[in-house]
């Protein structure tokens, strides 16, 4: 009897340690089947439009930073300094 108990405890402990899942735990959803990645069909125009959108976002954020810092907005002009 003691041996049975010892075996039972050892078995349960080992199963718990190694993450055994009871047979009745069938409600774990199966992982979704990985879909095949769609072929890259974006045209050059779409890629450039996306890139332009990102650039515009960066510029807008840059302007916000300047305003938050209280510094003067830069003047868009070509310098004629000594260089």
């Amino acid at each position: 009897m003691n041996l049975k108990k010892l075996l039972l405890v050892a078995g349960l402990s080992a199963s718990a340690l190694f993450g055994a899942v009871p047979a009745y735990a069938s409600d774990v959803p199966a992982p979704p089947v990985a879909e095949e990645p769609a072929p890259a069909e974006s045209s050059d125009a779409e890629a450039s439009a996306t890139e332009q959108g990102l650039i515009d976002q960066d510029l807008a954020r840059h302007q916000e930073l300047l305003e938050e810092a209280g510094v003067t907005n830069p003047l868009v002009a070509d310098p004629n300094y000594t260089g």
Binding site: L75, V76, P79
Partner: peptide, 8 residues
């Protein structure tokens, strides 16, 4: 005296 952002 001023802050400029060159076009290029």
């Amino acid at each position: 005296t001023e802050l400029l952002q060159p076009s290029d």
